[in-house]
Amino acid sequence: MFEARLVQGSLMKKFMEAIKDLVKEANWDCTGTGISLQAMDTSHVSLVSLLLRSDGFDPYRCDRNISLGINMESMAKIMKCASNDDVITIRSEDHPDNVTFVFESPNQEKVCDYEMKLMDIDSEHLGIPDTEYDAIISMPASEFQRICRDLSNIGDSVKITCNKDGVQFSAQGDTGIGKIALKQNAVIDKEDGQVSIELNDPVSLTFALRYLTFFTKATPLASTVTLSVSAKNPVAVEYRVDDIGYIRYYLAPKIEE
């Protein structure tokens, strides 16, 4: 059987919020390592990849590798039934037709049990090549969310330009142009609130704000976000989640015609 108990159940709620608008259905792959998911949005422009390591659960039991084919909207609805301080357990058989979510209140006076039907999903797994990125930008996750929100008022796309002076986000629309420049803070240690840039080569790329805005739904999961950019390549947007794993998004660039 498969059983994974997450004491900080609110994390599962947050992971769900971070993927449900991007992906309609996906397989949650459960192995001894943990729970992972890789899925593209329906237009094949972006991809989400997440890992919840087994050591983040207590206990974690996976007798046999299984894939749980899940409709995200249905799972998101069920996750909304869990309170923020509930302990969440995910459970299924070795050849499952259903998955069970159990929500226990901290004092264990209330236990909710939701059983959900699984789907057969033909997932195409993509190989993500190891890339030497031109620039790796770390910044407060809330700052990145703010930038995406603000520039969405100006245009559909954001141009990310990174050079020795820092990083600039700019958008252009019918009403005009918006530019947000961030300088690199002195990096002594990577505390929250700092912008740090690891620059190998100056780089400039354009991305659809609609998708970046979907990615920022992961903001409650992490204090810092990392953008890895390389000329003419997809951007990787990563949120590392303390003690359990990560959620990573990839977005194909817009290319000049």
């Binding site: 593209m40 094949h44 422009v45 972006s46 991809l47 195409e124 797994h125 993509l126 190989g127 993500i128 090549p129 796309s157 354009t206 659809a208 390549n233 997809p234 990839y250 977005l251 194909a252 660039p253 817009k254 290319i255 000049e256 015609e257």
Partner: peptide
């Protein structure tokens, strides 16, 4: 103008 590229042109099916 710029055109949205597809992710599958960068990442190949496994």
């Amino acid at each position: 103008s710029s055109k949205q590229s597809s992710l599958t042109s960068f990442f190949k099916k496994m």
